[in-house]
Design a protein around this nucleic acid. Structure first.
Length: 512
RNA sequence: GGCGGCGUAGCUCAGUGGUAGAGCAGGGGAAUCAUAAUCCCUUGGUCGGAGGUUCAAAUCCUUCCGCCGCUACCA
């Protein structure tokens, strides 16, 4: 049976334009999805947008458009960003779609039937003017000493009827989950924080609101709409046509990996498994939280005006250079800084000099000295076997890295082989062999072609467009690009196209 | 306040008991097939401070200093 793999990004909240952080999570998920496809697995890769809530309702009102019209535009913008970043999603779900509403309500009903939902009251400081609740520590003292909202609006303590989820019943079950499945939440730092959070004790969770209307009606009580997490998290099931367990996609549950930003790790690793347990469903295999990006050392913020649209970077540096940079720069899971200098450095040193140039020098030697025809694979020397051996283990080596979301380490493994390839070509010096031993020169070039093929194959998930071009230049047909295909060496005699640079060096324009 | 993380070469980081590592940057050399890219050699660290356990500690314990995260209804 073919292994199934279900990977998700968060559904992005449509209260603003997509930025580099959204692209980052999506690219990471895309790499995982593409890697599993190349491994021959049956992959379902989901992304989408989260479109309900009071903030959206208010933003639409402020823009003087209907909420639906408002979210249509922003959702389309997120989808455009995903397409621009070559995110190979199999489905793009929107929480305003009927299929999602139906699913979320079914999930609610299932959880309610289990007795895990009850009607209570949500209490808090409410500002009528802002139509919004504030927490105690957000409040400021007004001029007359009374409590005020940060906006200056007067607040009052109010009770609003609300449905609650019995989260407190799940503390022990959750702790057991973390203990028996230490890989459930990554990276480790997030895991430790979470365990200590849950150990502090869990309170029941308010899961509905009556203070706004832009949401999914609670089954059986139209006065309420579902509050954020119950609505949003359900997307991972609604895309599988839950509760229709006969649907073809239903077999993808439980999800293998939810990739999320670290701000929402808790919701995915505490609330979500608790909801699922209450509904009698399996919990996801893994949740992994990635860090934040700063820009030139500073936090991204609208007020600083340094929010980066990933599409602008792609315009200037090319898609694959950006994808590569984001995953290469800093261990996946931690925070990272995006600077012009480091982006250009990675592009020039690792893509242009190390990989691009290795490919270019090999292909031009083949073009010039072998009439552009792939030579035979013949007897291998010790050096030949050593290099090819390093290439051969890459798919398995990277699979174990990707299993634990160590995307940066997976790239480092490939770069070790690329550096070894550059050392090999220098030591073998096929340009010298041309004059002394033409047959050996051909053997060396053949080893290099096979090495590059292996490298380009395993890098496809990270840089799909460039590696497509590289494999074409190496004479590798579309059907010969999976990991399994690496077991069969290319037939000799193929004529290669004229070599063309894959990764140009980036030269910074003079500032004046 | 409570819980947790981090502090290792100029920079970014790896390294959880056994003679300090990688990449980049710096220095010297080789080669000239190639996008002037590459390869080889090399300088450089009392592993935040102090104390302790041990035959042996960056690695375990205590304490101090500095930075950061989490501390629930926030998308």
């Amino acid at each position: 049976m073919t292994a199934r793999f279900y990977v998700t990004t968060p559904i992005y909240y449509v209260n603003g334009a997509p930025h580099i952080g959204h692209a980052y999570t999506s690219i990471a998920a895309d790499v995982v999805a593409r890697f599993h496809r190349l491994s021959g697995h049956d992959v379902f890769f989901l992304t989408g947008t989260d479109e309900h809530g009071q903030k959206v309702e208010q933003a639409a009102q402020a823009a003087d458009v209907a909420p639906k019209e408002f979210v249509d535009a922003i959702s389309a913008n997120f989808r455009d960003m995903a397409d621009a970043m070559a995110i190979s999603y199999d489905d793009f779900i929107r929480t305003t779609e009927p299929r999602h509403i139906k699913s979320a309500q079914a999930l609610w009903q299932k959880v309610a039937d289990s007795g895990a939902i009850y009607l209570g009251a949500y209490e808090g400081w409410y500002a009528l003017r802002d139509e919004c609740f504030y927490s105690e520590d957000e409040l400021v003292a007004g001029p007359d000493g009374t409590k005020r909202a940060p906006t200056g609006a007067p607040v009052e303590w109010v009770k609003e009827p609300s449905y609650f989820f019995r989260l407190s019943d799940y503390q022990d079950k959750l702790l057991e989950l973390y203990e028996t499945h230490p890989e459930f939440l990554g990276p480790n730092s997030a895991n430790r924080e979470l365990v200590s959070f849950v150990k502090q004790g869990l309170r029941d969770l308010s899961v509905s609101r009556t203070s706004f209307k832009w949401g999914i009606p609670v089954p059986g009580d139209d006065a309420h709409v579902m509050y954020v997490w119950f609505d949003a998290l359900a997307n991972y099931l609604s895309a599988l046509d839950y509760p229709d367990t006969d649907a073809p996609r239903a077999a993808f549950w439980p999800a293998n990996l939810h990739l999320v930003g670290k701000d929402i790790a808790r919701f995915h690793a505490v609330y979500w498994p608790a909801f699922l347990m209450a509904a009698g469903l399996e919990v996801p295999r893994k949740v992994f939280a990635n860090g934040w990006w700063t820009v030139e050392g500073e936090k991204m913020s609208k007020s600083l005006g340094n929010v980066i649209d990933p599409r602008d970077l792609v315009q200037e540096f090319g898609l694959d250079a950006v994808r590569f940079f984001l995953l290469r720069e800093v261990p996946f899971g931690g925070d990272s800084d995006l600077s012009r200098k480091s982006l250009i450095m990675r592009n020039n040193v690792e893509l242009a000099n190390d990989l691009g140039n290795l490919c270019q020098r090999t292909l031009s030697l083949v073009a010039r000295n072998c009439d552009g025809i792939v030579p035979e694979r013949r007897e291998l020397t010790e050096e030949d076997s050593k290099l090819l051996g390093q290439v051969a283990v890459l798919p398995n080596l990277m699979a174990s890295q990707i299993e634990r979301c160590a995307l940066t380490d997976a790239l480092e493994d490939v770069w070790k082989v690329i550096r070894a390839g550059n050392a090999y070509i220098d030591h073998q010096a096929p340009w010298a062999l041309r004059k002394t031993d033409v047959e050996r020169m051909k053997d060396v070039l053949r080893v290099l072609l096979d090495t590059l093929r292996g490298i380009a194959t395993v890098l496809q998930p990270f840089m799909p467009q460039s590696m497509d071009r590289m494999l074409t230049q190496l004479g590798v047909e579309a059907a010969e690009r999976s990991f399994a295909a690496l077991d069969v060496i290319l037939p000799a005699g193929r004529t290669l196209p004229a070599p063309q640079g894959i990764f140009p060096r980036y030269v910074e324009q003079a500032p004046e």
